[in-house]
Amino acid sequence: MVEYSERQGTPVCMSQSPLEKAVQFHRHVCPGLLMGVRAAEFALQFLRVSPDRDEELVAIVETDSCAVDAIQAVLGCTFGKGNLVFLDHGKHVYTIASRERHRAVRIAQKWGNLRGAEFERFRALAQKTDLSEEEELEREELRGRILEQIMSLPFEELFDYREVQLDLPPRASIHPSVRCVRCGEGVMQTRAVETGQGWLCRPCAGEA
């Protein structure tokens, strides 16, 4: 029996747009993700670089919002690769640097750019948990209009940007692991605490 389903394919012979790469990674479409896509695409254009392969780029992000998933997916600056630096400032600010071009651009979301009545209504509906059918429809309609607005507006209406001088962090390095004498688990030596009894991981040392 055929069950109804709308499969979302994983294309192997069709190119994906930066937005699609971001959505594939983030798994849903939202305004924050699209803002990240716009910022990431602009950074590539401004710095005249391609997405990162092996730490040629560094991204310093001052938020942990949805937009950062777009930064990772579009720019290739990822948490695991070590070229995504998170500063917990709660600001929609992204500084993207190229090691090869010795250039960096600081991109900051403009205050008030998405604060119209339509956006506020969308946020109110998005935070509500018991939407009626009419409210669900309204939420999706608003979401569609806001997404279109984000992808269509001139970049300068969404963000401020300026070139900055940056002392780039060194490329990610690999350190040996030691065994925590309390829990027995391995821990990177540079993160371990040396005591009279031997190495301790931070949780066991009470530093976590």
Binding site: E6, Q8, E133, E136, L137, E140, E141, R143, G144
Partner: peptide
């Protein structure tokens, strides 16, 4: 796909 609306968004 994935629309939660009973109508058309």
């Amino acid at each position: 796909p994935g629309s939660r609306s009973a109508g058309y968004p």
